[in-house]
Amino acid sequence: MSAGIVTHGLTKVFPPPSRLFRKRPPAPAPAVDGLSLAIPPGAVTGLLGLNGAGKTTTIKMLATLLRPTTGTATVDGLDVVRDAREVRRRINLIAGGERMVYARMTGRENLWYFGQLYDVPRAVLKRRIDELLDLVGLREAAGTLVERYSRGMRQRLSIARGLINAPAYLLLDEPTLGLDAPIARDLRGVVADLAESGVGVLLTSHYLAEVEQLCRHVHVIDRGSLVAAGSPAQLTAGTRLPYSVELTLTAPAPDATKAVEELAARAGAEVRHDTDPEGRPRVTLRHPDDLAGELTTTVVRAGGAIARVEVAPPTLEDAILAMAAR
């Protein structure tokens, strides 16, 4: 039995809506097209793409909510269609937004009810509810009706609901959407701890810094197909996006400026001269390699006095936007 979530050629085509007395429109393009992924236990794996890329459809197929049109998906060797009930015991899904919990029940009643649906033993459930309420910071509001919760509180309860069955695999679809920054940061900590404890996590998020921080491996999909995969660093390096090195001089130094121009021409870097808010001369080099070392050496040798050097490596967000633009 293979551990982890594995998909082979996963494809989903949604049938066009039928209209009475109208000719059926042609079959639409697949929402997910031949996707092959591996989500190992004990790590956070990212699934990125632009809107409409097929992320949510993929997650819903892995969560047994939708059936693949073709291809297979297994969770620890269990097929998501044939063994759906057993798969549901091992997974859970947390989606962004504050729905998925009952508004006319309290936070504690919601967790109790969902624990019953997962057949969590009574003694375990009581302890787990308390732990989860502490984890998401809702212990004091546990007896309050959810309809009186704020949006962030509902989302936190939804996160607790997603952990009620102690899932081996957690599917997170924009989990920090609408959360306040401190709560989102706490959630990222929880996700990292879960992965550390052996839980396999699949994360989609529009906050790419979040993905960069948490994910060991990232799959990038576009129009339902896999277009890139690797660690955030590999994805970023693969796009050959420029590092930006910004050097500020303490005072104008014509020799240093000339030497920087020569360095830029030799390396094929993009160069820009301006002044910082305090009026000091500033030079910015943009190149796929980090030229910070060469730049500072060049300036110092040419007699320039450096006030400040700042290096901005390309981010995962830059890489995803570059891939989308292709």
Partner: peptide
Amino acid sequence: REGTLESQLLAPAR
């Protein structure tokens, strides 16, 4: 309508 159908269907309960 209340947004809880998916959380119901996710559970292994029949």
